[in-house]
Design a binder for these strands. Sequence first.
RNA 1: UGAACUAUGGUGUAAUGGUAACACAGCAGAUUUUGGUUCUGUCGUUCCAGGUUCGAAUCCUGGUAGUUCAACCA
Length: 560
Amino acid sequence: MAIEINDTPTKEKSANFLEEIIQESIARGETRVQTRFPPEPNGYLHIGHAKSICINFGLAKKYGGKCNLRFDDTNPVKEDVEYVDSIKRDIQWLGFDWAIERYASDYFEQLYDWAIVLINKGLAYVDDQTQEAIREGRGTVSEPGKESPWRNRSVAENLDLFTRMKNGEFADGAKVLRAKIDMAHPNMLFRDPIMYRILHTEHHRTGNKWCIYPMYDYAHGQSDSIEQITHSICTLEFDVHRPIYDWFIQTLDIFPSHQYEFARLNLTYTLMSKRKLLKLVQEHTVTGWDDPRMPTICGLRRKGYTPASVRAFAEMVGVAKRDNVIDLSKLEYCVREDLNKIAERRMAVLDPLKVVITNYEEGRIEQFTAVNNPENEDAGTRQIPFSKEIYIDRNDFMEVPPAKYYRLSPGHEVRLRYAYLIQCQEVIKDADGKIIEIRCTYDPSSGNGSSSDGRRVKGVIHWVSAAQALSAEIRLFKPLFNKENPEEVEEGQTWEDNLDPESLVKISGFLEPSLRETPIGQAVQFERVGYFCPDTESTPNHLIFNRTVTLKDSWAKMNK
RNA sequence: UGAACUAUGGUGUAAUGGUAACACAGCAGAUUUUGGUUCUGUCGUUCCAGGUUCGAAUCCUGGUAGUUCAACCA
């Protein structure tokens, strides 16, 4: 008997509960894995959906299965092709491909036929009650409901009425089709759930063909079943729906898809409710769904997040069934980690302070060689111009420095990154006492890579040569909300009171000349500052850079 | 006051009856022409009470807390 030697030293990462479920089903001999990502096209996808996408597509990939994209388009009132298109774009951007693209509306005919089956079995009836009466009749979580007076209509009458509903004989709200189950059931969803409602509304795919539309509970499980989904994965709030999901499938005796639930993603300082995000867009609190402050996938993309960083984040937060709130710092860690490896370094001054090198020849321009990415030698080098007048960042100079301040201050010397050592000789102020210029001398023997006497200086600061500098608009983003949990409100306030008025700050800064042709969305690191990318609105004549994330700043932290 | 789900460091996730671990965050240090990166060290955890067991985060019982469900939304 051959001895199997497992010589792969890699320790298998422990399986999450969904992987265990799949592994168990495979062990039972059910080898086919078919998942689906089922968004309703009524808004843009956000980071929470990204988690779901990574789970559904990731699981299918890991177990040699397939993942479908299915639009849950059963409510034409809220849905639109604009959303369909954006959802497809975002999934592809994340790096996933669906096996097939389907719509719940593709199944309207089949769903209708199944409704007829249920009516014939005496398990569905047309109810003429008003919306209010139905709501009251449903009872509450602690009291049973009451049966509708229309509950015991004959099969023939139900068939006739349902056909006429379909044919458009009745107005919106006049009638609904309900499953006949149990008005006293402890699970509210079993108290004769509504299967169809009348909606004389044009549908973005079926046009005016239908005026009755199936409800989620009647459509979702059967849609899964039609696609022979083996693992229908959704978030925890659908947990109570699972019994009704199973009930329709079993009663109709169709392919047994099964539903599994995981805890949705929550992020500190972030709102994930589609309804509230829509409100921010509609009221122009943000510039659109792709505003870089939005937690949407397109917002993250515009801010400069990479697909790999979002996928790494989904992997990092894991999958489980308990409610969670993830620290925003985890997301930021994931982008920094990715961008550190791939983003080329550049110099940019965000809050300019002019420095004149008094002993440097007027009109002289030198070129210094700078490394593009210390993490990747293949990224090569570039030239950056140096001259008598440069800009440095205002916070790299202090007239009266605190202890351990390594940067520029009167009488002290710092290294200009990739260039000379300079020493501050004089501080020029305006009439109000504001510092407007610094005068320094440089050590001609201290050029990049050399130091005449081996003396070392702790401080290294970035700079941009004034004459060649590009001016640019820089957009600095903070979270939209200034409260860790934006839903938590004081008495008499709303979540909108937690909006941070300074979540977007636009400033104008100076960039080194090589930044001129940076393609939109291309990540660069402004050395010592953060990661940035040109905004979608950026043009050669009006450069706009978005801050993706700051660099870690232990000096700032130390001085908090 | 019904039902379902959940409970492990500050945060998230593991440990599948046998040494509570990994990551993020924090703190301290080393290296550094980015106060970045990298490296090293460090802090700190099983909701409560009983029970089963040689042994419990894990199994049982009972509490407690949180979340979800009463749209003709999904």
